[in-house]
């Protein structure tokens, strides 16, 4: 029981990160029907941006105000990652809009290779550890055999995920921007005929996806305290799995899928073997796609004859 509660906490923390990345996949897929392969690498890039800003700001503010410096890091990382994703969309995807289906996918794979190697070249191939931070935790269940605790890190991750998701949800559901986005999802041509600036809406979608990926990047850095240039691929694929599991195109689905993938991964590692945790994630992806391709919250697709 104690083990389960502890793993539940760990799983939700990890799941929040996957969920945040998954939203980027699901939004882009919803609006332009493309798997944004480079999204995992954008997430990795954001973790690097966060790492550098964290070092700069914590040196300036001092180690005492760690939560405040994290707040600044978050804002800055969101801004600069968004700028990157905006540029990527402009350079690598926009010229291919309305082109053949495979072209943007290949372009995105190229972008993913580029970003990964770019970070390797400019920041070096080694793992980059952060100075230790927020190592305290609160004891929840005081058990002699297996004490259950929640760390400050985990609290920060879960709380900020919930707050940011609420803000994001408000934007998508209640503002005209969100309406424009949903209109473009339904029918891009019609939306543009009704006066929606489709290119701008798509750009904003990429910016929003990147901002959430940056949140995930900061959280990842806080949680693991280390990042390297190849850390984008596996979390990226898992987040995509989450998006598919939740039903691609559905925002609550992406979050739900992220939490499920996080929980499954953590539980698998705790109860079975840690070696095969990625195999488990990929197997889930395959099984979900084969047996329920529309996911948990997605709309079923009817074949048009």
């Amino acid at each position: 029981m104690e083990v389960f509660v502890q793993q539940l906490i760990n799983g939700l923390t990890l799941g929040s990160i996957y969920g945040l990345i998954a939203i980027g996949y699901t939004m882009v897929f919803g609006i332009i029907g493309m798997v944004n392969f480079a999204h995992g690498d954008v997430f990795m890039l954001s973790a690097f941006i966060a790492l550098i800003f964290f070092m700069l700001i914590s040196a300036w503010l001092g180690a005492g105000l760690i939560v405040l410096s994290l707040f600044f890091v978050l804002i800055l990382a969101m801004f600069f990652t968004s700028l990157w994703n905006w540029t990527i969309e402009r350079v690598a995807y926009r010229p291919l809009r309305g082109s053949f289906r495979l072209a943007p996918l290949i372009s995105a794979i190229g972008m993913s290779i580029f970003l990964m190697n770019f970070v390797q070249v400019v920041q070096g191939p080694r793992n980059k550890p952060t100075p230790p931070m927020l190592n305290k935790s609160i004891l929840l269940i005081d058990s002699a055999t297996y004490p259950v605790s929640i760390s400050y890190k985990q609290i920060i991750i879960i709380v900020s995920t919930v707050v940011l998701l609420a803000a994001f949800w408000f934007i998508v559901q209640k503002t005209s921007l969100g309406r424009a986005q949903r209109a473009c999802e339904q029918d891009r041509k019609m939306a543009s005929l009704l006066g929606i600036d489709v290119d701008r809406t798509i750009s904003i979608t990429f910016v929003m996806g990147a901002a959430l990926a940056a949140v995930a990047g900061v959280m990842y850095l806080v949680l693991y305290g280390v990042v390297s240039f190849h850390d984008g691929f596996v979390p990226g694929v898992k987040a995509f799995t989450a998006a598919v599991l939740g039903g691609i195109g559905s925002l609550p689905g992406a979050v739900l899928g992220g939490l499920l993938i996080g929980l499954i991964e953590v539980m698998w590692s705790a109860y079975f073997t840690i070696d095969y945790k990625d195999v488990a994630a990929f197997c889930i992806l395959a099984v979900v796609l084969v047996f329920m391709p529309s996911g948990i919250l997605g709309r079923p697709e009817v074949e048009k004859v």
Binding site: A92, L96, I106, S107, G110, I113, F114, M116, N117, F118
Partner: peptide
């Protein structure tokens, strides 16, 4: 790095 970049450029 160049490989990835070339993929994007050729596709465009």
């Amino acid at each position: 790095l160049i490989f990835g970049f070339a993929m994007v450029v050729i596709m465009i």
